[in-house]
Design a protein around this nucleic acid. Structure first.
Lengths: 337, 337
DNA sequence: ACTGGCACTCCGCCCACACGAGTGCCAGAG
DNA sequence: CTCTGGCACTCGTGTGGGCGGAGTGCCAGT
């Protein structure tokens, strides 16, 4: 059905269209990409490609542009990896150099990703649910108010105020603290509920109400923070592709919905392979005319995801390379810190 | 120079132009705003207003539009406050209801502000520098690694890892903790440097190196975090005013520069008066064609600022009202928590 | 001081037209 | 069976002219 040359023609169409953002015609292909055949032949191939749904015509007597399906084929079978330029590599190292805390790393990463790909970048904060507890701290704000601080191995810190019905002494707080830490330190957050479930039962009766309250808040924090944070950068890059989006409004709206973004990224857990969602493949209304390139990252197995959102008319090879490189580098960086 | 009726004409021009985004002519004014005079008279007034630089013509034989100077006069002398509608008031309460922690409050506020004003909203996180220490916590991660956690009265928590050359016992950490707290608890962050400066001198010799290191990191945290965080929402609203911005690109770029935003908001400290910067009055390149309406907020005297960014062709009375109302409400909310 | 009238300007819109890029199809050559 | 050159056709884009209308500035009159 699709012989070698037809695929070459498709590649030529995708590459030229990405470069010029204008429909590409048979003559241009025959000239620029030395296929050794005449425009007429290319035309026949194009007709075949159009029948199969890989390319389309904006209108009669215009050149062809790739369809979502065409991009998909291109990404899956036709695109060769394009190595990062030395300049890009250098930029990457410099950019992440000297990032102080987790916030800083994420913010720099997202900027970097947006700059390198010239698109909108999204980086999820290392998720609570996939990390482990380092320490639980209790600070007594008042006799009946505690501040619960949860510290994870990815550098994230969550805090919550706990209101108690009873009053506590400093010693009691200390007891509580060491009790919680003995159970939780080193455990994955996902295990936390199981680990602390039986605590109230084993405690002395007078401790129980307090313990129950604290544990409730602790678990609430874990659940609540399921709605995790994301950083966003490069939205201005949307405007450069005025040709691609008739209106960028729905895209901006979708990008502001954290929930949507997380859903988008949530599917890309694997740090070894880049996931590409093209146009209509996106479940998210409003991003139907965009492509999303995403990947998992983190020390060891993935703890979060990052990616970029851009027009379907995107330089996939470069974008994929950049996303992969940055994810790997940030992952190492987090592991070392 | 500018008699009563001329001011009325200016008001009419501003109001109509804000509503329709089209240049307004003398006839429309004479009809819609019953001034009791003929279009010809209005024309004379308009000529005077134009001479004074309050309005301008896009081209001969078009209506007039307000200049920055015209908006300025309108805001300062002609705009009456417009109370919040009951629906808006209800929305405000519901929106902030049940916000758990500081992050949540800020995120909800910024969304609310963007929704109510239908513009881009910016909310600065309560700044460290203007708040006070509640507690300093030290968590021993390893014999020579401490986690320093700083808790402020606005609910913000900052953490930093401290690497030590020497190893510490748990007791030593506890000593250090109580020492720091005895000095810092309840003090304003801005006082912190002065308060802890002499600590190493008064300590026992063997404690000094550790103390110096910890204090250095502590002060670093304060300085570092000067570059404070902001939350942004409603960027999609920029697209609705396609008439107002030929390109929204520079605006989006400016909004992504946190530094720029902070500079913008930084000037609005006073929680009692709304600050309005119109068009060219903005120091920030890229926001020269926008207006910024901002105000300080927080429990008691202001601890941070919030505001909106929109086209100069903006409904100033409504916007000012909304910004003021939300700032006040969020301030109370923070105070009560 | 205000009004009505009038001539003038200029933008926006519509239409017609020509141009050119690109196609599909076909007949003929290898 | 595959490729090529030729040709007629389609359709979007750019250009230029003409028209209508909105709005103005000015002036003479009340």
């Amino acid at each position: 059905m699709l012989d070698e040359r037809k695929l070459e023609v498709l590649r030529a169409i995708v590459e030229d269209f990405v470069r010029t953002s204008e429909p590409v015609g048979s003559k241009a292909i025959a000239e620029r990409h030395n296929l050794g055949v005449s425009p007429a032949t290319v035309r026949n191939d194009m007709a075949a490609l159009e029948d199969e749904g890989y390319i389309a015509q904006p209108h009669t007597s215009a050149g062809r542009i790739p369809t979502d399906k065409g991009y998909r084929l291109f990404v899956d079978r036709l695109s060769s990896v394009k190595p990062l330029s030395p300049a890009e590599r250098r930029a990457m190292h410099q950019f992440l150099e000297g990032a102080a805390d987790l916030d800083d790393v994420v913010r720099r990463s997202v900027r970097l990703l947006a700059t390198l790909t010239r698109q909108v970048a999204v980086v999820q904060y290392p998720s609570l649910s996939r990390s482990a507890v380092i320490h639980v701290e209790l600070v007594q704000l008042a006799p009946n108010r505690l501040l619960l601080v949860l510290i994870t191995d990815t550098g994230r810190v969550e805090q919550r105020v706990v209101e108690l019905v009873t009053q506590l002494t400093g010693d009691e707080v200390a007891d509580l603290r060491s009790l919680l830490n003995s159970r939780l330190a080193g455990r994955a957050l996902t295990d936390a509920p199981a680990v602390v479930a039986d605590l109230p039962d084993t405690a002395r009766p007078e401790q129980r109400p307090v313990l129950t309250t604290v544990i409730t808040v602790l678990l609430e924090t874990l659940i609540d923070k399921k709605d995790e944070r994301v950083a966003l950068a490069g939205t201005a890059n949307l405007t450069q592709s005025a040709i691609d989006f008739p209106t960028i409004r729905p895209v901006l709206e979708a990008l502001e919905e954290n929930v949507v973004l997380l859903k988008l990224l949530g599917e890309a857990n694997d740090p070894s392979t880049v996931m590409v969602r093209i146009g209509e493949e996106n479940a998210v209304e409003g991003l139907r005319s965009t492509s999303v390139v995403s990947i998992g990252y983190g020390p060891g197995t993935a703890v979060a995801s990052m990616g970029v959102v851009g027009p379907t008319r995107m330089d996939y090879p470069s974008t994929i390379t950049a996303v992969r490189a940055i994810a790997r580098y940030v992952g190492e960086h987090l592991g070392g810190a």
